[in-house]
Simulated scan of single mutants.
Amino acid sequence: MDGITFLGGGSFGTALSVMLSKKGYEVLIWDRKKETADDINIKKENIKYLPKILIPCNVKAVNDIEYAVRKNKYIVLSVPSHVIREMCRKIKPFLQNDQVIINIAKGIEEESKKRLSEVIREELPLNPIVVLSGPSHAEEVALDIPTTLVVSSNEMKYAEEVQDIFMASKLRVYTNNDIIGVEIGGAVKNIIALAAGVCDGLKFGDNTKAALMTRGMSEIVRVGIALGGKLDTFYGLTGMGDLIVTCTSMHSRNRRAGILIGEGIPKDEACKEIGMVVEGITACEAFYELKQEKGISMPITNALYNVLFKNADPVQEVSNLMKREKKCE
């Protein structure tokens, strides 16, 4: 049984580490912070990112990235999307060509507008790359609450390997050969979840949430197909599934940040209060620029961008959305 290394001691990576350790895998977590590694090794708890979850003894943590990379065949990138390229460059000197890179971050690179698997491929051209995505809050995965995920790759034999690794009694993993759709669905849903939180912060109701999610789904499909994804993918786990869980749950950092913004708290203060990266903010800016370049209609993304980056009044932006020219669904 090959071991697994997680690069980044965040909540989701830690939750998956706990799950894999219960299957008998030896798991290594690398984190740049000594206190995180000490908490995992000594207190058997990731106090900052996944408190009150017991971490089994076959999960170890280190601060030595060379050791962490050389130790195991499977390398999981469990860092935020905006540092994926930096992390790939950092680990490249220590990698062997047969090591499999598994990305669990959701988003696109803000500057290049490239999908994360494309970024990884540019930096690590010789390694197999697998994307793991789907509706999965770390807090629930760690508690063995039934969850489903999807894996994709340009080389599906590696996706099937990763499927076998992560399948468990409470974690069901599907394969999907549409890596573009899987990545785009997982990235754009963060924008809609952030917008859903803003609506919650404004004290709008269920009707508004249903409208936002439904029309948000249309935006996911529209941009996803324009970028080469397949329609069916967006009605699966990484599209509709991820959208539902992030728009409705208080586990969702994007929704929670949106609530604060809807209540009038500036986005930087909202992110500080959340205490973790709010991917929807970066995604909103990136997809706003992308839709401008490619002429894709994304009115919800446009409205959220105005709120986040132009200090627009969210109530007025909702009014603008409602008053747009009439159209057929």
Rank of each mutant, 00 (worst) to 15 (best):
V83N: 07
D38A: 11
E122S: 02
M87K: 04
E86C: 00
D39C: 11
K92N: 14
E110M: 08
L50Q: 13
K44E: 07
D98F: 09
E45F: 02
I47N: 05
K43I: 15
N72M: 08
V69A: 10
K113M: 04
Y67I: 03
K106W: 00
R89I: 06
V79Y: 05
R70E: 15
E118H: 04
A61N: 11
I55T: 12
L50G: 13
E45Q: 07
K44C: 07
I104F: 10
K114H: 02
V83T: 14
S112M: 01
Y49H: 11
R70H: 06
L124K: 05
E109L: 01
N63A: 03
Y67F: 15
K43W: 03
S112Q: 00
R89M: 13
K48R: 15
E45W: 02
S112H: 00
I42Q: 09
Q96T: 14
I120Q: 04
I84K: 01
L50W: 13
V59T: 13
K73P: 07
S78T: 12
I55C: 11
S112C: 02
R89A: 05
F94N: 11
D39S: 15
E118R: 07
Q99E: 10
S81K: 03
I40C: 00
L54H: 14
R70C: 12
D38Y: 08
V62E: 10
I102G: 07
S112N: 01
H82A: 02
L54I: 15
M87W: 00
I120P: 05
K106H: 03
L54F: 15
I55P: 09
S78L: 11
R32D: 02
P80K: 08
V62Y: 01
I75N: 06
K33V: 02
I47M: 13
E123R: 01
S81I: 06
K48L: 14
I47E: 13
K90T: 14
N103A: 04
E110S: 11
I53W: 05
R121F: 01
R89Y: 09
K48H: 12
C88V: 04
Q96C: 08
A37G: 10
D38L: 09
A61E: 05
I75S: 04
L77S: 04
I42T: 15
N41A: 14
S117N: 08
E122L: 00
V69M: 10
N58L: 07
N58H: 10
V100G: 04
V69R: 09
D98W: 09
I55G: 11
D64Q: 12
V83C: 09
D64V: 12
S81E: 04
V69N: 12
A37Y: 08
I84C: 02
N103H: 03
Q96S: 14
L50N: 13
V69L: 12
S81R: 02
E122Y: 00
P80N: 11
C57L: 12
G107T: 02
N46Q: 10
I53R: 04
R85C: 01
I75Y: 07
P51Q: 05
I40E: 04
N58R: 09
H82M: 02
